[in-house]
């Protein structure tokens, strides 16, 4: 209840405050109108109204003309990369078999999902990975042979971990979620997906 109140207050106070401060009066009107529009949603299950409050990146990427702002792109990417939390134990690769089941699962974070169940990464919704799985999407690039072509050096492991943890560190307005940053996957789950991509034994690289 308290949390709900806080998020409602946050919605009222913060929603678009960033843009509102920076822009002209007509834009303020537009911000007001957008805030009004967001009253068309109601909290449901685990999906509270605070989800409609955009962070800086979401706000930036909601403008279809974001590509023009080169300086902001570099700044945001740098800031997102700096915030990546690598595993404390220094191990970046987990178990590719666990990674495969995480890649297959599309549950998690929807208002219809049970919040006590772990989320999946739903990689196959957008990417080709193992040659056995034919039901894959094409929103993202094919990741077939991801490790075979890149190797699994420390640097590649760190890149892969960071890309999954926060894709915006490398491509500010990518369609890919920030699995670590937004707490969709746990640290162990990210390690397992890294293994799916990089482990020479993973079918992705066979």
């Amino acid at each position: 209840m308290k949390k709900a109140l806080v998020s409602m207050a946050a919605l009222a106070a913060v929603l678009f405050a960033g843009i509102a401060l920076a822009q002209s009066r007509s834009a303020v009107g537009e911000v007001e109108a957008m805030r009004e529009l967001m009253r068309g949603f109601k909290p449901s299950g685990q999906a509270g109204l605070s989800r409609l409050v955009q962070d800086e990146v979401q706000q930036f990427c909601s403008d279809p003309g974001w590509q023009r702002n080169k300086a902001r792109i570099a700044a945001i990417e740098g800031q997102q990369l700096a915030a990546v939390k690598y595993p404390a134990d220094g191990k970046l690769m987990g178990n590719w078999k666990a990674g495969e089941s995480i890649a297959q699962s599309g549950v998690g974070k929807q208002f219809s999902d049970n919040p006590s169940q772990p989320s999946g990464a739903n990689c196959y919704a957008c990417h080709q990975l193992t040659p056995q799985e034919l039901s894959f999407g094409t929103i993202g690039p094919s990741l077939r042979n991801f490790g075979k072509t890149r190797g699994s050096s420390e640097a590649i492991q760190r890149y892969t971990y960071a890309k999954i943890y926060n894709s915006r560190a490398y491509s500010v307005c990518t369609n890919m979620p920030r699995f670590g940053h937004s707490e969709i996957l746990t640290e162990q789950q990210i390690k397992d997906v890294v293994a799916l991509l990089l482990d020479p034994e993973s079918p992705v690289n066979k």
Partner: peptide, 9 residues
């Protein structure tokens, strides 16, 4: 075009 939520969708 409004991106939001944990998945930035």
């Amino acid at each position: 075009y409004y991106r939001g939520g944990p998945h930035d969708f």
